[in-house]
Amino acid sequence: MKRRTLLASGGTALAGSMIAGGAAIRSIRRSPGRSVARAENALDRDRIVETLMEGTDRETAAYEVDGSEEGPTAVIIGGVHGNEINGYRVAADVTGWEIDAGRLIVIPFANVVAVERNTRGGPDGDLNRLFPGGREPESDLARAIWRVVEGADPDLVIDLHRSRGLFNTHHRWVGQAIFPTEGAERSTTRRPSSTT
């Protein structure tokens, strides 16, 4: 079965199982003196496929997890907001998964400076706001992340964040949710607007 056909029949289940399966990670915890760089080194370095922003304070890795069978490609991003610990913990856990089919490209610590500072934004502000729909990303880091996404030609992109509430909305936050992008057409030039 071709990966896009498989995705059409089970993509939502794939996304749900990724989120649920990674939710229990306990291996990377914030503690005094433990840097994200040391946490990254604990991940499977053999799975690193690209180092983004190499040689800068924003240097971070993209990992690849391959299944033995053909299947959908998913890109999973954590740590866009450094104070949303759940996102980078889950993404880091995913780098160690064994999967039967398809391919996962994972950037667990997308905004490594913000993760290390435990702040929402990094040196360029809120990374999540630097991907304007229909235009080029607005920082070197955002462009590097987008290059990885485009290069993966994904069927699904999961940007992991923390949320409040399980299935409902709060006056300021959205609960646990999957937001599909608009339209059925795939395009590498069109980006969804930020929602979190």
Rank of each mutant, 00 (worst) to 15 (best):
I76P: 09
V106M: 13
I107P: 13
V112F: 08
G71C: 02
A114V: 03
V112P: 01
G79E: 15
G102K: 02
V75R: 10
I85K: 05
N86Q: 13
E116T: 06
P108V: 03
P72K: 04
P108W: 07
G71M: 00
R89G: 06
G78N: 13
V90H: 01
W97I: 00
T119D: 14
I77D: 12
V75F: 12
V94K: 06
V90T: 10
V94F: 15
V75T: 02
E84T: 10
Y88S: 09
G78K: 08
E116C: 05
H81Y: 15
N118K: 10
V75G: 08
A92F: 11
T73R: 10
R120K: 14
D93Y: 03
A114R: 03
D100L: 09
G79N: 13
N118A: 11
N111M: 11
E84S: 05
E70N: 01
R117H: 11
G82W: 05
G78Q: 14
R117Q: 15
V75H: 09
R103F: 10
L104G: 04
P72W: 00
P72H: 04
V115N: 06
G121V: 07
A101F: 14
I105N: 07
T119K: 06
G67D: 02
D100E: 15
D93H: 10
G82S: 10
I105P: 02
A74L: 13
N111W: 06
L104F: 13
R120Y: 10
L104I: 03
A91P: 08
R89I: 03
D100G: 13
T95A: 09
V113H: 05
G121Q: 14
V75S: 03
I99G: 07
G71Y: 01
P72V: 03
I77Q: 12
I99F: 02
N83Y: 04
Y88T: 03
V112A: 08
T95Y: 14
P108F: 09
G102V: 02
V106P: 14
V112K: 13
N86W: 03
V75P: 02
G71A: 02
G121E: 15
N118H: 11
V106K: 07
I85M: 08
I85G: 03
E70G: 00
G79S: 04
I107Q: 02
N111A: 13
G67M: 00
I77A: 01
E98I: 00
P72M: 09
G96E: 14
S68C: 09
D66I: 00
R117L: 09
E69G: 04
R103L: 06
I99K: 05
N111K: 04
V94W: 04
D66Y: 00
P108G: 10
N86D: 15
G87S: 08
G102D: 09
G121H: 08
I77Y: 03
D93A: 11
R89E: 15
E116S: 07
D66R: 06
A91D: 12
V75C: 13
G82K: 06
V106L: 10
V112G: 10
E69I: 01
E116R: 04
A101E: 06
E69C: 00
G67W: 01
A74P: 02
V113C: 11
A92M: 11
V94L: 14
E69Q: 03
N111Q: 14
V112Q: 13
I85R: 10
F109Y: 15
I76R: 12
V65Y: 11
A74H: 07
E84M: 12
V113Y: 05
N86E: 15
I76C: 05
I76L: 15
G78T: 07
D66M: 06
I99Y: 01
D100A: 14
V115M: 12
V90G: 00
